[in-house]
């Protein structure tokens, strides 16, 4: 592990350096929201933000993606594969919760017989430069999910704001190699590292929102037919805010757009998500749809991969139009007496 520092005012020079061989994607402030976009010489990456409105999943799993194009003639059909992405990417300013979400997505989309080559192709070309959280929000609950405001999971490098400069920590060999090319970075002083450690432990303590998940998966095993779902779904509008802004939700629909086979984000909260060609809908009401979302995150995924499919980023908590707070849902499950 290596420790370096960079003066804040030199950060754009670092980005410029990285942009020589990579496509750099980083947070940018636009109209009161921060979105991750391609950083060019025209714009400047912003590292003073809570978190990006949308999670980084969209870099690897865009909302609309052409899988392949085809041409048909009377007796024949030809498939034209989309060109493979060879360009290397560097994602700058990824928060620890979001970086962790990529690790979960990697597991989910690469296991089993059918691998998501579209996601994985982009993913393997990416280097993740994380940014530790010094000031977690009241809606952050990463520590309850096994994360941390200075967590390194999924990162190649970790940045930390230590007032006038960023402390850079190498996490993987890939990250180390990226830094090797930038000769002018200074080695971190002992005091810088100490300062970083202090900020990390302060931040860890500042995550006050706690959710106990210890018995949730087990309880959910016995709650499939629980009347609880009737109550909890009452106020849900069935929109896609929670799932679309979720860093781990990755369900999609496949469409024909002219001669293109396209996939788009889909949401288990939508009426038509489970609608079958016959007209039958196995999840006809909000109750079944809400149950699916909670079960997938806190039961099915736990069984299949040993972890919850939530990183506690709090986006759904902040943005739900009716303040249906997933932390409350989990707490209610946890407090429920089941036979």
């Amino acid at each position: 592990m290596k420790w370096k520092t960079i003066e804040k005012r030199n950060f754009s020079a670092l980005v410029e350096e990285l942009a020589k061989e990579n496509e750099v994607i980083g947070p940018l402030k636009e109209k009161n929201t921060v979105t991750s976009v391609r950083i060019t010489s025209e714009n400047e990456v912003c590292l003073d933000f809570w978190n990006t409105k949308k999670p980084p999943k969209e870099v690897f799993f865009p909302q609309t993606e052409t899988l392949f194009t085809y041409r048909t003639s009377k007796n024949d059909a030809e498939i034209i594969e989309s060109p493979a992405i060879r360009k290397k990417m560097v994602l700058v300013g990824v928060r620890p919760c979001d970086s962790r979400s990529l690790v979960l997505l990697d597991k989910f989309l690469s296991s089993g017989e059918h691998k998501d080559v579209y996601y994985l192709e982009k993913r393997k070309n990416a280097t993740i430069v994380g940014l530790a959280c010094n000031h977690p929000l009241s809606t952050c609950f990463c520590t309850s999910l096994g994360g941390s405001p200075s967590g390194k999971e999924g990162m190649d490098l970790l940045l930390q704001d230590i007032n006038d400069k960023y402390l850079i920590q190498t996490v993987t060999e890939k990250g180390e190699k990226l830094l090797e090319k930038i000769s002018w970075l200074k080695d971190a002083k002992k005091a810088d590292i100490e300062k970083g450690k202090k900020l990390s432990s302060d931040a860890e303590a500042a995550v006050r929102s706690k959710v106990s998940l210890s018995d949730v998966s087990e309880k959910l095993d016995k709650m499939f037919d629980d009347p609880f779902w009737d109550q909890i779904c009452q106020k849900c509008l069935g929109c896609g805010v929670c799932t679309f802004l979720c860093p781990t939700c990755c369900c999609f629909d496949v469409l024909e757009e002219g001669e293109e086979r396209v996939r788009i984000w889909d949401s288990c909260q939508f009426l038509c998500f489970a609608l079958q060609g016959s007209g039958h809908n196995p999840r006809p009401s909000g109750k079944e749809r809400m149950r699916q979302r909670i079960m997938h995150k806190f039961n099915y995924f736990v069984k299949n991969y040993g972890k919850s499919f939530c990183v506690g980023c709090g986006r759904c908590v902040q943005e739900c139009p009716v303040n249906l707070d997933i932390r409350d849902v989990v707490k209610t499950i946890s407090a429920r007496k089941v036979e």
């Binding site: 109209k31 929201t33 949308k54 509008l237 896609g240 805010v241 949401s267 939508f270 009426l271 139009p321």
Partner: peptide, 24 residues
Amino acid sequence: STCIRCYACRNVCPLCYCKMCFVD
């Protein structure tokens, strides 16, 4: 241009009561 097609605008609207929305 920033719309993410989450349909919160539609689903929150009391007037959007169509059993099957045109867009679905």
